[in-house]
Design a protein around this nucleic acid. Structure first.
Lengths: 174, 174
DNA sequence: GGCTCATTCTTGAAAGTTGAACTATGTAGG
DNA sequence: CCTACATAGTTCAACTTTCAAGAATGAGCC
């Protein structure tokens, strides 16, 4: 008996639609691939750049923002992490000298996280290795069609999980 | 200037093949979708079952094993986590009464992790909610073709990241 | 047996994450 | 102005994960 596929009826609980055999296999493959990849990138970046993948992603976001800085909330939103987590992360990156905090003049509650030159340099040094790792794990293994398919699939999933869609199944609240 | 796409040449460092525009978008979508989904499942299970997604996965693995038990190393391998992490996790699950440790008679170093009846019951209670969450996030949003495509893609990626493939690009070592 | 090396699993400390509580500031309405 | 509530960001404690080190057993070889 499984806990994703059909367990048979008989319980007094509402029966969901269990996963088909194919769906179970896809789900398992998804879990394996995503956890292996995230672990792989975490180790690669921890070894080469001295920070986990999420932190590296924060630096990348900042590097692409105007004046290389973003409000904390904005950065948290675009990196898909909580503000609490970001506070800790930025504190650590600041200690490394890769990010600097700045007060927001127009809103005294606000803070900017700004990428320092040193942070930019860390990014420059590690970008080649990181891109290579991503390529070897994903793009060099997939056909062009698969890359396109993956993009479409991931966009659909991400759209369904965006916070603002939390009430998407509660239309009567709108 | 980006750190995944072409940054232009001119550095003294070996230039990797940067990501194309489409690859960058796919990569971004992949990161968003996977982190949003993992966060979503973590919160759902933490709220309903009182444990993170990885721990729930351990119970699922055990529930499908003969006699509902597995050697620690085997469980770690199938769940794609380190033995250290598993040790801590099982300690916690044991404290909850959901897993029990047993000595392996044929190898005195070995330990079995065995799912308790209580653990089985937790699984039973939470399986419907969990499957529903997975379904809403993934299978109910994708076409049958996309599900098949996703399976193929994830299998390719997972295969390339399996530990034993660490030397896959070093054929002269074999 | 005894040596060496591999394997299994655990441990402890440091690092990272979470969720709730908290401070401070902004905003809307009387 | 004042109250009430919302938003921005931080902090604390509890929890989880990682990495390196360690204890115990197994396996091969002389």
């Amino acid at each position: 008996m499984g806990f994703m596929g059909n367990m048979g009826t008989g319980g007094d609980m509402a029966e969901p639609r269990w996963l088909t055999d194919e769906e179970q296999h896809v789900w398992r493959a998804y879990l394996h691939a995503t956890t292996l990849l995230e672990d792989h990138l975490d180790r690669q970046l921890q070894r080469d750049a001295g920070m986990p993948h999420v932190y590296y992603g924060l630096l990348v976001q900042l590097s692409q923002a105007p004046r290389r800085r973003l409000r904390m909330t904005e950065l948290a939103r675009s990196a898909k992490i909580t503000r609490s987590r970001l506070s800790h992360a930025v504190a650590r990156l600041e200690k490394n000298g890769w990010v600097r905090r700045e007060n927001c003049p127009s809103d005294k509650r606000g803070q900017f996280a700004q990428l320092t030159d040193e942070g930019m340099e860390v990014l420059r040094r590690n970008a080649p290795g990181h891109v290579t790792a991503v390529r070897q794990a994903m793009f060099d293994r997939l056909s062009p069609e698969q890359v396109t398919q993956l993009g479409a699939i991931m966009r659909v999933m991400a759209a369904g999980l965006e916070p603002q869609d939390a009430d998407a199944d509660l239309p009567w609240l709108r």
